[in-house]
């Protein structure tokens, strides 16, 4: 018998999951479950949407209405679901390649519309499922199977990208900072509008190994020692923030929400 939380929110028959030993995704998936438990939401009223990649397998493990869609398109599927059923809590779980490369267009446009959904990014800085190619969040200079001489691409800051595109809530958590990440996911779900919680995961199998940064323990120790809370970071200089990862709530704005706006269109059209 697993822990009560797991028993309630995971499809036990499909566990243990396929993720590698020490993969941060399992921790983050538990954070999502804990956030939903803390909010006391009805499981039948939650649609969990994922794309393709390591992170997307979460949809098969979590016991909600779940849909594992095509690569990069989770937010677009979720947009249709939310517009068809505005009463549903729509949660997207996506990876960094999934959401910021192939699905980048959907991310910025859903953020621009401020449609009510919560996107939880499991960001492991690498394409894991295909074996360790560099992703849009792989830091410059790092190594990957398709960056054998070092990555010359500059990485995206997914949370900042979403905020700039119009998301009304953005935050960043990590696999190490579980209580904080749970709190941020809760805030994101409760927030009316497009919310994005970028969660720094760890990929010991490809990212850690390729970059000689160690296993999960070393990667999570880095998170423990190098993260700065957003309220503290506000008072720090650019130099002081060099090499640090800012975590916590990053932005919260009051923009009109898309499905609410569309309700008004229906009222207008029916007059």
């Amino acid at each position: 018998m697993p822990a009560e939380l797991i028993n309630k929110y995971m499809r036990e028959a499909h566990l243990p999951h396929i993720w590698c030993p020490g993969c941060g995704h399992g921790i983050l998936m538990r954070d999502v479950a804990q956030a939903i438990e803390d909010l006391g939401l009805d499981q039948n009223k939650i649609c969990l949407v994922s794309g393709i990649g390591c992170s997307s397998r979460a949809a098969g493990y979590m016991d909600f209405n779940t849909i594992h869609t095509t690569h990069g398109r989770a937010i677009a599927f979720a947009t249709g679901i939310k517009l068809a059923r505005p009463d549903m809590n729509v949660i997207v779980i996506a990876g960094d390649g999934d959401i910021a490369a192939i699905g980048g267009n959907h991310l910025i446009h859903a953020a621009r519309r401020n449609i009510d959904m919560t996107v939880v990014v499991f960001n492991n800085d690498i394409y894991g499922m295909t074996g360790g190619q560099f992703s849009p969040t792989t830091p410059t200079g790092d190594f990957a199977t398709t960056a054998p001489y070092g990555n010359i691409d500059r990485p995206f800051d997914i949370a900042a990208l979403a905020e700039a595109a119009g998301a009304s809530y953005t935050a960043r958590g990590t696999a190490y900072h579980a209580p904080l990440t749970i709190k941020l996911i809760k805030e994101g779900i409760e927030h009316k509008g497009f919310s994005l919680i970028e969660c720094a995961s760890v990929c010991p199998t490809y990212y850690g190994r390729k970059n000689k940064k160690g296993g999960s323990v070393e990667l999570m120790t880095w998170q423990k020692e190098n993260c700065v809370m957003s309220d503290k970071a506000q008072h720090m200089s650019k130099e002081e923030l060099e090499g640090k990862l800012v975590i916590g709530r990053l932005s919260e704005k009051d923009y009109p929400e898309y499905t609410e706006q569309y309700k008004k269109i229906i009222e207008k059209a029916r007059k």
Binding site: P2, L15, P16, H17, P21, I27, R30
Partner: peptide, 13 residues
Amino acid sequence: CELRCPDYAIYVE
């Protein structure tokens, strides 16, 4: 341990 176990293999009951 429970909070950070990726495999839900350890927990406080």
